[in-house]
């Protein structure tokens, strides 16, 4: 019961923060709302027994990626968007909101049609570092894991090459 209440509370905050990311005029306000959203999603992960993923969510997403975003926003020193009031509906805004609304209701309708099955019993230590690590390093995910490390190196070199004035 407590879990359900907490889940709905955290999810509500996450959704409100997510909406605020899209609706905020100032990019910094957007970025900070996204940090809030990530934190509450991490809380949801804890409720779903994904402890390691929750910690990595805060470390990597809220810690590293969002710092990068905020750093770039401040580096560019952007002025606010052209001062259009939020409620002045442009054609693009209307189309975008309609597509998002149709997509959201469609997804929820499709999910509601899923057959309801009982949740499986989770084993001891589920979602902790040990079980996730064993799953990565002793199963079919070892090669993808190594490929991801190569991908990160490529992205790192690519970002430096792109952003550097002279190589």
């Amino acid at each position: 019961m407590t879990e359900a209440v907490l889940f709905y509370l955290f999810s509500l905050v996450a959704i409100v923060a997510g909406l605020s990311v899209v609706l905020a005029r100032n990019p910094i306000a957007s970025a900070l709302s996204l940090v809030v959203c990530f934190f509450f999603l991490a809380a949801d992960y804890v409720l779903l027994d994904a402890h390691f993923v929750a910690v990595i969510q805060i470390l990597v997403y809220a810690g590293a990626i969002m710092v990068l975003f905020i750093f770039v926003i401040m580096l560019l020193n952007l002025r606010d968007d052209a001062p259009t009031p939020l409620l002045e509906i442009s054609r693009r805004g209307l189309v975008g909101m309609a597509v998002a609304g149709v997509l959201g209701t469609g997804l929820i309708a499709a999910l509601e049609a899923l057959p309801v099955t009982a949740a499986a019993k989770i084993p001891e230590g589920y979602g902790k570092v040990e079980s996730v690590g064993i799953s990565i390093f002793s199963g079919a995910y070892l090669l993808p894991f190594e490929v991801v490390s190569v991908l990160l190196t490529v992205a790192l070199v690519g970002a430096v090459v792109l952003a550097k004035r002279e190589i």
Partner: peptide, 17 residues
């Protein structure tokens, strides 16, 4: 399962918007 997936769908639609 369904409420969690519904939250996920709402967040995804927000991102698309």
């Amino acid at each position: 399962l369904f409420p969690v997936l519904a939250v996920s769908a709402v967040l995804f639609a927000t991102g698309v918007g």
